[in-house]
Design a protein around this nucleic acid. Structure first.
Lengths: 211, 211
DNA sequence: TAGATTGTTAATCGATTAACAATC
DNA sequence: TAGATTGTTAATCGATTAACAATC
């Protein structure tokens, strides 16, 4: 079993990956062992060529004409690709309801993420616990990131504080930021910011309703 | 002041809208009255032509060479476009931490959304209150949607229940679904599903970290 | 063999970016 | 006037989809 694929895994492919995994697991639970791209495409309302290309991009071995792909192998390859087998460590900033929701989210641990520290800017919250994790003062962010080699920061603070927190994360050597604040963050070239912007989502939804 | 623009507002344009609005408000707070596309582009790390086209798509009057656009007008046009002036009514299904975070989210009311009812599938939660809203049994969903002419449903229930809830929303005549469950929802052509998939987001982030 | 499915090359589509003339 | 900025047309880019030969 060697590398054969030169197809690149694009962001769009990555985005579809969890949906594939869910379908594969459902089939696995029915004791099915192989599956074809068209079958998965139909279940997910996707184009079959797209699914085939996605599978080709992640699978460690080729699919068999007439049979398809080995489910267990595909699943393993996807989990490996997404790092489910070796969790990323992250810190979370903010202690509001959204922070609570993220920490307690059933999925997140399974998705290869471990939140190892929580910070807040509000004095009153510092020292309290959230899901068993002690809340630290935000001025310790860059220090802890550096010391623990943290590479992912999750921002849930209000708009006004977001860029400041972001800067501290960058100073701490963080490589990627999951941004739940509703504002644009300015970062150096090589840093990835992934925005989770409810206002943007609502913009799309409410435009659809205006017809 | 009449319609002049034939430029269509794409999904991507809509997605950027809240970021523009935030910048415009910041400038307005500094008593600035006009702004150019390149200025906003620089602040948001976007291409200036893209911003200019976006502005042209939403603005009710043309920009002036050398001056740019009137901030107050642009803001009004954007708010109008996104329906901030006449709120959509929505129902929310689920009472977990994520549901709590959505209901209490500072922004959401301002973004032209009013959550008028909350449902849950878990018997123990029914009748309790969440943020002052009484939690109803999920078998009443389609009825209430129809009666109140609800057009947006927000799904925060676990994966297994998501499609069932979705079907009830559709049966109730809902036109759009904001899907926080981690699974694909099958819906008729004309219904819009907007996925908020944490697993997909993490897939993108953790891939970036693997380099 | 026939037919489902694969992998790949080419065509299409949509969005972004570049180029440039018009204008205040 | 000169220069910043607009609006628009054309070029580029990336992703999706169509077409089709290869294969089990």
């Amino acid at each position: 079993m060697y590398e054969h694929s030169i197809r690149t895994v694009t962001t769009q492919t990555l985005r579809r990956m969890p949906y594939y995994m869910h379908q594969l697991k459902l089939l696995q639970n029915e004791n099915v062992t192989t599956v074809s791209a068209p079958k998965i495409a139909e279940r997910l309302n996707l184009n079959e060529v797209q699914v085939r290309k996605d599978f080709a991009a992640v699978s460690s071995s080729k699919g068999k004409p007439k049979t398809g792909f080995l489910i267990s192998e595909l699943l393993y390859n996807m989990e490996e690709l997404l790092g489910y087998h070796n969790a990323d460590e992250a810190i979370l900033i903010g202690t509001g309801p959204l922070a609570q929701a993220i920490i307690t989210h059933e999925g997140i641990q399974n998705y290869g993420l471990r939140i190892i520290a929580v910070f807040d800017t509000v004095d009153d919250n510092i020292g309290s616990e959230i899901n068993g994790i002690k809340v630290l003062a935000s001025d310790k962010i860059s220090n802890l990131c550096r010391r623990m080699k943290i590479r992912l920061g999750i921002i849930t603070v209000p708009a006004k504080q977001a860029q400041g927190i972001c800067d501290q994360l960058i100073a701490g050597g963080v490589q990627a930021i999951w941004n739940f604040s509703q504002v644009h963050l300015s970062v150096p070239e090589h840093i990835l910011v992934h925005d989770e912007n409810f206002a943007a989502s609502l913009a799309i939804l409410s435009k659809h309703l205006k017809k």
